[in-house]
Simulated assay, not measured.
Amino acid sequence: MGARIDHLVTSGTFSLDGGTWDVDNNVWIVGDDTEAIVIDAAHDAAAIKAAVGRRTLKAVVCTHAHSDHVDAAPALSAATGAPVLLHPDDLPLWKLTHPGEAPDGQLADGQVITVAGTDLTVLHTPGHAPGAVCLYAPDLGTVFTGDTLFKGGPGATGRSFSDFPTIVESIRERLLALPPATVVRTGHGEATTIGEEAPHLQEWIARGH
């Protein structure tokens, strides 16, 4: 049996630059009946652990270190023994949420994470955050984009540690090069496809998100 994708939505807050907002986050679980990884442990470690069930959790993978994507990561790690993995460029953001704690391991561009016989390749896609990554799983026909690419355009770049030209370049070079049918599973909201978003690149640039 190959890997499948399970999905739950958790609710909480996102805080940065002195502001706090209510948010709903997508949490993605990739695996089979035996083992799994979690992509973005948001808000509710108990709910995520329940969704993982009796499976061995191999890793808690962080697409970036904004508080709403990592706030439950240490608790989920403590409950399951799974290492928390983060790109090192996002350590300054991680420390805003978890001062005095550190992730267990690093993510690097081109790194391959294998779960249930399925490979997910790490794509470093800075812009929304310096260490933002996407996870491309060609066997599943999908890419997990965190807050780099949404249905309708790039992730927000109006706050600290973010940059609009950088995110556009990341999307152009790393994501729009993927097959058009690739399903984009995002950090918030509904899914889209690479083919659906690709034609709008110039519109995004003109809008200067």
Results as ranks from 00 to 15, higher is better:
Gln202Ile: 00
Arg54Asn: 09
Ile39Leu: 14
Ala206Met: 04
Thr145Asp: 08
Ala82Ile: 12
Ala116Cys: 06
Ala51Leu: 15
Gly53Met: 01
Asp40His: 13
Pro92Glu: 05
Pro165Tyr: 12
Ile113Met: 10
Glu196Arg: 08
Thr34Phe: 07
Pro130Asn: 14
Glu35Arg: 14
Pro92Trp: 01
Ile205Met: 09
Asp24Tyr: 04
Leu91Gly: 04
Ala3Pro: 01
Gly18Gln: 06
His200Asp: 10
Asp119Glu: 14
Pro83Glu: 03
Asp163Tyr: 00
Lys151Phe: 10
Asp71Ser: 15
Ala36Asp: 10
Asp44Ser: 01
Ile48Thr: 09
Asp139Pro: 00
Ser11Ile: 06
Arg55Gly: 07
Leu76Asp: 07
Gln202His: 10
Val61Tyr: 02
Gly12Val: 12
Ile113Phe: 08
Gly31Gln: 07
His43Phe: 10
Gly189Ser: 10
Phe144Gln: 11
Ala47Cys: 00
Gly18Ser: 06
Ser170Asn: 12
Ala102Phe: 08
Gly18Trp: 07
Leu93Glu: 09
Pro92His: 01
Thr10His: 03
Thr192Arg: 06
Pro99Val: 00
Glu197Arg: 10
Asp24Ala: 15
Asp71Ala: 13
Met1Asn: 03
Ser67Lys: 00
Asp109His: 15
Gly189Cys: 12
Thr166Leu: 04
Ala137Arg: 04
Ser77Ile: 11
Asp32Thr: 09
Leu123Gln: 00
Ile37Thr: 10
His7Phe: 15
Phe144Asp: 01
Thr34Arg: 15
Pro99Glu: 07
Ala102Glu: 15
Leu107Asn: 11
Ala129Leu: 05
Asp90Glu: 02
Asp90Ser: 14
His43Leu: 01
Val112Asp: 09
Ile194Lys: 03
Ala75Pro: 05
Thr118Pro: 02
Pro103Tyr: 05
Asp89His: 10
Leu86Trp: 06
Ala65His: 04
Thr157Asp: 02
Asp104Thr: 13
Val133Lys: 08
Trp204Ala: 00
Thr192Gly: 08
Met1Ile: 07
Ala65Thr: 03
Glu173Gln: 15
Lys95Gly: 12
Gln202Val: 05
Ile5Val: 15
Thr182His: 07
Pro126Met: 10
Val183Ile: 08
Ile113Asp: 03
Ile113Leu: 15
Gly127Asn: 07
